[in-house]
Amino acid sequence: MISVTNVQKQYRDGDTTVHALRGVSLSIEQGEFISIAGPSGSGKTTLLNLIGCIDTATAGEISIDGRAVAGCGKRELAAIRREKLGFVFQSFNLIPVLTAFENVAFSLTLTGTPDAEARERTMRILDEVGLAGMEDRRPSQLSGGQQQRVAVARALVKEPTVVLADEPTANLDSRTGHAILELMVEMNRRHNTTFVFSTHDQMVMDYARRLTMLHDGEIVSDERRSA
């Protein structure tokens, strides 16, 4: 479903060239719950960005659902992100002026889903993430955990191929973090949605059923665990 083949990423930092990824290969199947972990600077966020089509590789090949992303134009990449990928960010990144309902429905607005269907799907996913009754609250009226639930709902509502979560618990206390991870596990189980995390948080790693460790831009271990 997601295939990463010999991907390299270099960028300039002043006069030096930083090798963020040095020939990473990885295959992720439908329904996996995978953590890409490693210390700071190991390249985990870079890899997540490349899979998420918000950055481009210097070399190598990435394909999503059999579609190679190299060579895609800006609009095609935007379409892939819109239709196949869901994002959960460390700092939630909700649109402040929109309510919880509107933030979630935003994803469906972008895909051109008819209003009635968008409404029905949004209400259902908000119910699933435990935010029934809070649809009309703005992000500023929600706790951090609730905001992250909205972000998870926003990622899931369009039924993407994969949800990419960059340090999703970093801005949450451990209890709320646990709750969010439990929610993601539940969504993964219920919808068979693939979840890919980048993290250096042991708690997130503990939840993962597959743990891929990166170090200095290379995969140093790729371990599958039983549920």
Partner: peptide, 14 residues
Amino acid sequence: TREIGMMRALGMDD
């Protein structure tokens, strides 16, 4: 800028 980045990440056209 971050809001713009988020909207682009979600697939909103430039």
